[in-house]
Amino acid sequence: MSVPATTTAQPLLTVDQLVVDYPGRGWRQPPVRVLKSISLDIHPGETLGLVGESGSGKTTLGRAILGLAPVTGGEIRLGGQRISNLGKRDRRALSRDVQVVFQDPYTSLNPAMTVGDILTEPLLVTGSSRADAQRRVRDLLDQVRLPADAGTRLAREFSGGQRQRIAIARALTRDPKLVVCDEPVSALDLSTQARVLDLFIEIQERTGVAYLFVTHDLSVVRHISHRVAVMYRGELVETGDAAAVTTAPDHPYTRRLLLAAPVPDPGRQAERRAARHRLAAEQAAVAG
């Protein structure tokens, strides 16, 4: 796939009034509504950052797109084709176009398999020859800056940042159009985090893949996203240009979120803290 990093008017992914319910815990408990009519779209080659706190439903949205969460209402379309509530066979066929990088590089790679096996598995199940698959693995390891002999080692022999590179390589094996990235750098050290983010950007600029980048960290989302969507309690409260949303947010919740994130500079952090206290007082006054 060699789509240049430009957009067309036709969105790659459309999420249309998506509703997700999880069954209630216990007998005859009403289901819990995790996503309440979410609509958004992602264009080819674009990164949409999805920000929110724990329990906001941001991870569930990613999982619904991947077919790992039940879709109760609404629709998800990829290139105009409905991909929500597909049968198992159709869903498997979709694995070529939609891929994932999970948050925890320690549990997302099978500890008992070599890196080579992890990377060839998606190719072999779709009928590639072993030689082709191995050639592809060398290419992928090179793309994510891992040594070529990494394929013969077990995933647990690698550090967190290296494991995340392996997970990225696995997502890229079949040239997907969209990769759902669920907090892929939040388990990493600061310096590693910056390098992995730059790898994401570089791959995107080269291959034209689109990302749905789920994170709780506004500074990460600002670094990697073209556009940002903010989720709060299962609803999308704000969507817009990354620079605008992360510097001058519109919605009260986004403003609270922005002011709560501490700046690594004592002077500016003191100002931000004062601004946060002012905002809290204002919001309390309006609510009260």
Partner: peptide, 24 residues
Amino acid sequence: STLEDTPARGSLPASDLHPEEIAV
């Protein structure tokens, strides 16, 4: 390595994004 002061990535280079498409 802190990302706080890095510039935002900006919008996608192409200009044919119609605002009504992304209006939510």
